[in-house]
Simulated assay, not measured.
Amino acid sequence: MSDDAIGFAAVAGMVAACRDDWTLDSFDRVEQGTDFVARVACSTPNGEQRAVLKATIAEWMTPEIARAEPRLFERIGRETAIPVPEVYGFVDRHAEYPTPFYLVEECPGENLEGRPETLAPAARERVLREAGEHLAALHELGEQPRFGQVGVSDGELAILPTDHDADSERELFRAGVDETCDALADGTAFPDYADEPQRFADLAEPLREALHARADALTEPEPPRYCHWDYRYGNLLLDPATGETTAVLDWANLSVREPAHNLAKVEAHLLDPGGNDSEARARELRALFRDSYESARDGWAFTPAKRDRMETYLLKCRTEAMACLPLWLEDATPREKAKREREHREYVREYL
């Protein structure tokens, strides 16, 4: 069922499947994202209740992985101080509606995707400090038995095999490099969105060579832990006045990797290479993020080896940003895309 076909009757049915004592009164579709998400108003035994309904309709998201999100909300909410929505109910399989789907609390706050510059300096700093604390809390859930992706097996959270035949951070890194560089060479990771498919094709092989060489030189990674792979402004709800993070969303892509790789990925998201920060300001925010993380993990420190691995991971993150440019800048002008291209090329030049 496409999102266009999901009308009032379907939304009402999904709400009732999650909570049989709730009745849908109205709903508003949230346009952002690749899944069906709606804010719903319902009549309940305790009066009117507002909530959020999400149904997975993106073809690239497997049900085994998507089913993990409400279960992760429950575990993260129970075992950490990371703010996540309360879960009202979820359904893994249904004969009529797209699954999985779930019903959760509607949290306060605003999505500031593409607008972090609207935050006051102190509020922006709070976002970075809390990001460090949240990742530390996630990683402190403990070492995991193997690398992979978090999903659901036999109704329980489990670590699923990856798409790659790899059982170490180094092997997964290499596989990710090849996948990304292949995308750059073939017309980016999102050719349907690309107005210039060959924008970075000339850099595909030089970047592949540089990243594989850096993989050879990687020091031994830490054991794998849960990693939120998409911790960015688009998946945060914030108090725009204070910068307080009121909810961390999108847990359907939780990976099991080494913490330094997760830290690099989040730095790449929150310190947007296309933002308006000066180099000095970016260094200041990076230091806030890293100091916050380090302070929240007892006995953990940013050693030279970890910093070196993060630099390699950050180069890979930049390569991924190049491959994703058509989607991430879908609504940008040609001039804005060209500006971002120049920024990416300038960044990778020193590594090639």
Rank of each mutant, 00 (worst) to 15 (best):
P108R: 11
E330N: 11
T246C: 03
A268F: 15
E220T: 11
F147G: 10
A287S: 12
E59R: 07
T312S: 03
P197F: 13
S2D: 10
H94S: 14
R225H: 14
A332C: 04
P161D: 02
P83N: 00
R174E: 03
G132M: 01
V40C: 06
L141N: 09
L135A: 13
D195E: 15
A58C: 11
P223H: 01
D167H: 04
T99Y: 08
M322C: 01
D25C: 06
R75M: 14
I159L: 00
R286C: 00
A120W: 00
V91L: 11
F190L: 11
V150S: 05
H261K: 14
E222H: 13
E86N: 13
S153Y: 02
L157C: 01
E279V: 15
E133I: 15
H261Q: 12
S292R: 10
P191G: 02
R257Q: 15
G33C: 11
L218G: 06
D21F: 00
D163Q: 09
W60H: 07
T162M: 06
W300I: 03
Y347F: 09
E311S: 02
V127A: 10
V256I: 00
A338C: 11
A301I: 02
T245S: 10
A5M: 01
D25G: 10
A17V: 06
D163R: 07
V11L: 09
P191Q: 02
L237T: 11
E196T: 15
A41I: 14
H269L: 05
F36D: 06
E48Y: 08
R349H: 01
L325M: 08
D308P: 09
G114N: 05
E74S: 14
E105K: 05
E244H: 10
F101E: 11
Y313T: 02
E343L: 07
E143V: 14
A301C: 08
H139W: 15
E320K: 03
C324E: 05
R129E: 13
F173K: 00
